[in-house]
């Protein structure tokens, strides 16, 4: 599971949970694999992210590079920044770990890179 996915996931479908976002991350194994850097694609992805959540998660897993806490306005032209975003967002795979609901502490296992977001009928 890449951080791009973490940025989009919520536990709000659980009974009694309001936002369920961001999910807490527990990392047991990380795998890093390089992938093609596409400048235009990364700049288009940035506005779709919750930036603050992304930076906190990237720092937590130790792959934040020089990512700033606040996004700078001319980020499209900042190749260094875009490369750091690319790396943290797409090249670091959380292979084993957990996602935890911030409100109920319900755990979602990440196993072999695949998060299990299924909830039982009685949890809805």
């Amino acid at each position: 599971m890449k951080l791009v996915t973490h940025n989009m996931l919520t536990s709000k479908c659980l009974k009694g949970v309001n936002t369920g976002y961001p999910l807490k991350l527990v990392v047991k194994e990380i795998r890093v694999q390089s992938s093609d850097f596409n400048k235009e694609f990364i700049s288009k992805m940035i506005p779709r992210l919750d930036w603050a959540v992304f930076v906190v998660a990237a720092k937590q897993i130790g792959h934040a590079g020089n990512l700033p806490d606040q996004l700078l306005p001319d980020y499209e032209n900042n190749e260094e920044l875009l490369k750091d975003v690319h790396h943290a967002l797409f090249e670091v795979d959380i292979y084993e770990g957990e996602l935890i609901c911030p409100e109920t502490n319900r755990k979602f296992q990440i196993s072999e890179g695949i998060p299990n977001m299924l909830v039982k009928e009685n949890e809805l």
Partner: peptide, 20 residues
Amino acid sequence: VNNTKKYVEVLNGNLLKAFQ
């Protein structure tokens, strides 16, 4: 491409229930 791989992010879940 250039020895790097493109991947698909795979999740186990029900429709869009886990997505913001």
